[in-house]
Design a protein around this nucleic acid. Structure first.
Lengths: 96, 96
DNA sequence: TTGACAGGCAAGTGGTTACTTGCCTATTGT
DNA sequence: ACAATAGGCAAGTAACCACTTGCCTGTCAA
């Protein structure tokens, strides 16, 4: 549902996670934790980040690929593509 | 801030309010209450809607124009226009 | 000027959410 | 085998958020 996407994006930490994955896709949980701390000044625990990733996955914004003891996170931009189209038709003119 | 926009859009009632204003701009609080109840099956009180409108205004998604004892609400689509661009560059190739 | 109409203010409540803490499981290198 | 690494589960807490309730202000028509 689209509501899940907006709810997922409503949190600043989650938006930063997407930023990180947009810059370097396929990071593991530990990589993300390290980079969020070092580069973005976020001091969240591993569990907190893990829970954020769950929310992002439920919203379809990331895809999780398990491999051995690693867990790679991939950005999925599809749900982001026509997010606000619902309110943006006027300019053209042809409503359905 | 962009975070305010996502937070504002995270609520279903607020998204429906934007739908209503997209269809018929410049409604008053009472009009909105009536139409949300009758057409969208939402049973919220006037105050609840009023608070939602405050949030939408704070996010820059509506503009409020006072006139006599009426208060007209207008949709502002500008904050919606490049909402997700932040994560959508990859396809092209030319980062800033 | 009085009453009806449109809206505002503010305190309180219940549910949700972000985050922590503590412990557990699975995979891998030596 | 064993320890280190990568991650998972679940209960508890504090803050936030949507919504209600009760009362108040301002505008207009009769």
């Amino acid at each position: 549902m689209a509501g899940d996407v907006f709810r997922a994006l409503a949190d600043g930490t989650r938006r930063t996670i997407l930023d990180e994955l947009a810059e370097r896709d396929g990071q593991t949980l530990f990589e993300l934790c390290a980079r969020l701390t070092n580069r973005h000044g976020l001091g969240s625990t591993r569990q907190a980040i893990s829970q954020h990733l769950d929310v992002l996955e439920a919203a379809g914004l990331i895809e999780v690929r398990r491999e051995g003891r690693y867990r790679f996170h991939h950005l999925r931009t599809e749900p982001l593509e026509h997010l606000a189209d619902r309110w943006l038709d006027p300019p053209g003119s042809n409503e359905r």
